[in-house]
Amino acid sequence: MSHPARIEEHDDALRAAGLRVTRQRRAILQVLTQADDHPDVPELHRRVQAEEPAVSLATVYRTLAALSEKGVVQKLAFEGAPARFETSDAPHHDHIVDLDTGEVIEFVSAEIERLQREVARRHGYEIVSHKLELYCRKR
């Protein structure tokens, strides 16, 4: 997607969340969209400040809360860790959480997806949504 199209998409997401479009809010969404990890609020704030030095921690919290409520971003609450965030338009994936380092690894498994559908079907259900989090330690 082109840069102007991405900016327009972000502006639309902010408006849909009931937020005024500002440089700071646009930067928050841009940084989160470009993240290849799952930043928590302080880390996201640090990254956004590199682009928009005047952005406050409160602005990051309020923006994420509004975008999360509207489904633009997902709040990930891994056991024993601060909430992390990712955009909702990312393709479906599951997570491995390294209990020793806190690292979160995304993965996709067609076999796991098939098994989940089969289990749901056997019990008379169709999956509407799901998430899988594996909490692991390296061997």
Rank of each mutant, 00 (worst) to 15 (best):
L57Q: 06
L67W: 08
A65M: 13
V119D: 01
D11Y: 04
S129V: 04
I127L: 14
L115E: 11
V55Q: 07
V55I: 09
T22K: 11
A54W: 05
T63M: 00
H45C: 05
F85M: 06
E9M: 07
M1L: 10
E79R: 12
Y125K: 03
C136D: 01
S88M: 02
G18H: 03
H10G: 06
L67E: 02
Q24T: 08
I96L: 14
R20T: 15
A54Y: 02
A110G: 11
A83C: 03
F85Q: 06
P39N: 06
A66R: 14
D11W: 06
R62C: 04
K138E: 12
V73Y: 03
D98T: 13
V55S: 07
K138T: 15
V128T: 12
V55K: 03
I112C: 01
A90H: 09
A65Q: 10
V97G: 02
L32D: 07
L44W: 00
L132D: 00
E111F: 09
Q30A: 14
F78I: 07
P4D: 06
G18S: 03
R46D: 08
T33I: 01
V21S: 01
E8K: 12
A54H: 11
V72Y: 04
R25L: 03
H123Y: 10
G71I: 12
A83Q: 03
R117H: 11
E9S: 12
Y125F: 15
T22Q: 01
A54Q: 12
T33S: 13
R25F: 05
V55Y: 08
A120Q: 00
S109E: 11
V55W: 09
S129N: 09
V31Q: 09
V72A: 09
Y61W: 01
G102V: 10
S56L: 09
L64C: 09
Y125N: 03
Q116R: 10
R62Q: 11
K131M: 10
P4W: 01
R114N: 13
E9H: 12
A50H: 13
V104A: 08
D40A: 15
F107N: 13
P53G: 10
A65S: 11
A17T: 05
P4R: 06
V104P: 02
V73Q: 10
